[in-house]
Amino acid sequence: MTLLKVDGLNKHFGGLHAVNSVSFDVKKGDIKAVIGPNGAGKTTLFNLICGGLDADSGAVEFDSQPILGLKPYQIAATGISRTFQNIKMFPGMTALENVMVGLHTKSRAGFWAAMLHLPSTRTEEKTIRARAYALLELLEIAQFADVEASSLAFGQQRAIEFARALASDPTLLLLDEPAAGLNIYETAEVARLITKIQQQGITVLLVEHDMSLVMDISDEIVVLSCGQHIAEGTPSEIQHNEEVIQIYLGE
């Protein structure tokens, strides 16, 4: 079953055709990776899906609903979560608080309820605190719950970011270069966590530079080059695709 359908997506920056009629599907339950050399249009594609950029033409359907043109916070409400290439921890907040912000769409308390500290707010606060803690446990970082998130190591911050993104109970998780800035041990750790997330029944679409990570965990791979869809298939198909080898290794 198709969860996300990207159909003929186009984006120009001036004379540069950054994303050129890209189409692909993401099957429910899969880990799908988008790879390509620098400047292939991976990040642009990612931002088009997340609502950070407006597409020139094309369509993106999530769960058979068009999502192109929605604002990021509206896209989040449909059940898509994302992480950032340069991990964006909320400064001054503990790991637990970061994840609690992720539970925003799962909680209700508004300005009045919060100011008056109503009993319903108190119960809700307890619930989301417990849920946030459970997510930190799932990602094996519960011991850092009360530490300021931005003071932790990159690998740990990445795990907190995953927990934060999972907090909204997404059906689709978008990861923007999850291995960026990590050493090989941390990358292996992140790969393991991504598989663990998949086992929770969450579909993952990741944009990545790091080949080892992608080949190990992906069910399917899309290769972009100069904004165009070059190849698509399983990791072993991609590894043996002449065109892909040429793009990556040159003539």
């Binding site: 916070y73 989040a76 964006k88 909204s168």
Partner: peptide, 30 residues
């Protein structure tokens, strides 16, 4: 009233906006 507000879901959302607005946005915060 304000102490209650900052120590709540709304207060966290505000601090998130202050710290990283695009990340707050992608958490579903309007």
């Amino acid at each position: 009233l304000l102490l209650n507000l900052i120590d709540s879901r709304v207060g966290r959302a505000l601090r998130a906006i202050h710290g990283a607005e695009d990340a707050a946005d992608s958490m579903g915060i309007n």
